[in-house]
Design a protein around this nucleic acid. Structure first.
Lengths: 151, 151
DNA sequence: CTATGTTAGTTGCTAATACAACTATTTACA
DNA sequence: TGTAAATAGTTGTATTAGCAACTAACATAG
C-alpha cells in the first residue's frame, strides 16, 4: 500500500512536500555538521548559536531570545551556553534593568571561531547548492520558505 | 557587526537561505511533534519511520535502508525499531537470502496508528501551510527542494 | 504594602541519538 | 579453497536535549 493510494488522498501533496522539507534539511544538516566537526571541531549547534548572536542587532541576546532563535528549550539552551562558555566562545552579562535576565554575548574567540566556521560553511554550501540551484531559484526558494515560516 | 558586513560577503545569500531552511524545518517539526504527541501519543521519529515503511515499494525495508530513509545512524535505528517493536507497530523478518539482513515491516497496529497520525498531520499542514502557500507555490517549493536534495 | 501571578533562568531526571567496538555473514580474490 | 575485506546489525558508552520542578525577580491587583 503506497501513500498515494492510502486513506488521505486529498492532502497527500502536502505530506510529500513536508517530508521533502524534513528530509532535505536532515541531509544537509548532517553533511554540514560533519564538515564543521572535521574542519573546525565545532558542532552545528554551537555554530548556530554563535551565528544567531552575531546576527542580533544589539550584538547580544537574552537566554530566552537565544533559545527561541535556535529553536531549543530554555533548559537545553542553558546547558548549551554552559558548554560555549567553557570553550570561551561566549560570556554572560547581567541585565541592568532586570536581574532575572542574562545577556549572552559572543567573545573575540567566539567571533574568530565563527569566521572560521563560516568559511567551511560557505565551501559546503558552494558544493551542495551552487550547481543545483541557480541564483533565481535560490531567491525563489528563500521567498517561499519565508512565507512558510511566517509565525 | 552584522552578518552582512562580516568576512564573507559574496556567499551570504546562501548562508541566509540555508539558515532559513533549517529554521523553517525546526519550527515546523517542533509544531508537528507537539501535535502528534498530543493527539496520537506518537513521537515524530516514530511517525517518520512508519511513513517510510509504508512508502517502501515492497512494503518493508532492511535496517540500513530504513536508517538511510529517516537519516539516522544504524545504531540509532536499531534502538528506534526496538521501541516500535515494543509498541507493536513493526515486526522484524529474517531475510531469506542474506542472514545478516533484517527486514522491518509495519504491522496492522502500526498501519492503524499511522492512519490516525496522518489525519493529525494533515490538519497540521492545513493550518500551517494552506493559507501561506498557494498550490502553485507548493509545487514550486517541492521542485526546488527536490533539486537541492539531489544526492 | 502585600499577595498573587507571571517571567527568566537553572537543575534533576530521563529519553533519544551518535560513535565506536564487536559479532556474524557475505563477497572478492589469490 | 582459504583468507582478507566489506557489509549488516547490535550493544556499550557518552552526549545532548526536553520536561518538569524549582528559585529568584518582576508585575499587577487589592
Amino acid at each position: 500500500m503506497s501513500v498515494k493510494t492510502s486513506t488521505c488522498p486529498s492532502g497527500n501533496e502536502k505530506v510529500i512536500l513536508f517530508g521533502l522539507l524534513m528530509d532535505t534539511n536532515a541531509r544537509l544538516a548532517k553533511g554540514l555538521n560533519e564538515e564543521l566537526e572535521k574542519a573546525c571541531r565545532l558542532p552545528l549547534a554551537w555554530f548556530d548559536a554563535l551565528l544567531q548572536l552575531r546576527k542580533a542587532e544589539s550584538g547580544r541576546l537574552k537566554m530566552n531570545e537565544l533559545a527561541n532563535a535556535i529553536v531549543h528549550s530554555t533548559g537545553g539552551t542553558t546547558r548549551l551556553i554552559d558548554r560555549l562558555y567553557e570553550a570561551g566562545f561566549v560570556a554572560r552579562e547581567q541585565c541592568p534593568t532586570d536581574r532575572r535576565a542574562i545577556y549572552v554575548t559572543i567573545t573575540a574567540a567566539g567571533n574568530a571561531k565563527l569566521d572560521d566556521a563560516l568559511t567551511t560553511h560557505l565551501e559546503f554550501l558552494q558544493d551542495t547548492m551552487a550547481d543545483r540551484l541557480s541564483g533565481v531559484e535560490r531567491e525563489t526558494l528563500s521567498t517561499l520558505l519565508a512565507k512558510l515560516n511566517a509565525h
